[in-house]
Design a protein around this nucleic acid. Sequence first.
DNA 1: GTCTATATGTTGATAGAC
DNA 2: GTCTATCAACATATAGAC
Lengths: 210, 210
Amino acid sequence: MSDDSNTKDRILAAARQEFYQKGLAGARMAAIGEAAGVNKAMLHYYFRTKQDLFEEVFISAFGQVIAPIPGILMGEGGLMDRISRLSAYYHDTLTQTPELPVFVMNALQAEGGGLLKRVLERAQIPLPQMLPVLMEKIRAELSEGPYREMDPREVFLNVVSMSVFPFMLKPFLMTLFSMEEADFRAFIDQRRETVPAFLRQALELPADHS
Amino acid sequence: MSDDSNTKDRILAAARQEFYQKGLAGARMAAIGEAAGVNKAMLHYYFRTKQDLFEEVFISAFGQVIAPIPGILMGEGGLMDRISRLSAYYHDTLTQTPELPVFVMNALQAEGGGLLKRVLERAQIPLPQMLPVLMEKIRAELSEGPYREMDPREVFLNVVSMSVFPFMLKPFLMTLFSMEEADFRAFIDQRRETVPAFLRQALELPADHS
DNA sequence: GTCTATATGTTGATAGAC
DNA sequence: GTCTATCAACATATAGAC
């Protein structure tokens, strides 16, 4: 697939770096070419325009963020187990690529609704169709199991918020808490355990003492 | 202060709109001028360069996001009350300006650590000095009150994550959950109550039944 | 497929009249 | 303070040789 000896893939990898950090408007085709070890002209040979190259990168990033959701949340195990798996998935993905969420959300905010619609059509992403089913499943589990009453959309939202947002705050946290790279890593790593525990405490009813 | 009959303030207001949505690189000086009802040249008359104008806007946005934290979390009342007030503050601010967090975090990611350092020096923001005191206060309250053991930084992080991140997901949520503007508003408004409740359940120890 | 050279269009910024 | 006119500096994109 993404072979580094393949020119097209080297360009894509370089474009990812550049777009992730600078966004569509801030990215420079020359910088991408240089990082990929080829001339600017090659970028246009493989991907007609900057916009096209950008959307290729965006679709892949977008997929990384939302494609795994249905598989994880509709998969095996109890509700809390699946929630923990989703949280762990984001933790692992974003540990490797912490710039991902800011890139995606900034693109969505800057390029307007058109981008999202185009991407949902082009890339076959099952989430939009799955989501109502998913929410109904969670709603049913919440009302059966020993859980507090909650809007299933809010459960979903709280899980994602606590799992993803701290990575976006990385530059923030490092400055405010006087952290080095290793400190941040240690801090964020402990959340791999504490986030699911926190969610469990918030969602589960306390054991009956009678 | 920000008087609409004042040219400088009209420019600042227009710049905010433009920078919030498009970021530094994507924003156009011509667009800002047009929105402010003045010529491009005026922007340079009041704010020498695009970069200067941007940093003016960024500092104000950054302050809106973090300046109120010490006052709220060091203020009156119990821990849960102050946490609820912080959550409510973000809720109200971001209801009016949902683009704010993506703008701030994108700027931080794109412009690198230099921006943050410059801003913390220029704008007198007390948070960095206050934060250790704040964390120690929370730590003490957690160990005294009927709360679960937790890293106070994580408490802080979870509060902010659940309060802020959903606003960043606005375009996402509207598409995925098939919401109109009014639907989103209703959904996010209910969180003004449910988020503090969720946090309380996660943090407080269940009442003793004996 | 890959490069050099160049066309073409924007954009931030300034000079200077009013 | 505000405008018009203009400059200089990129940056994307293409043409064409190898």
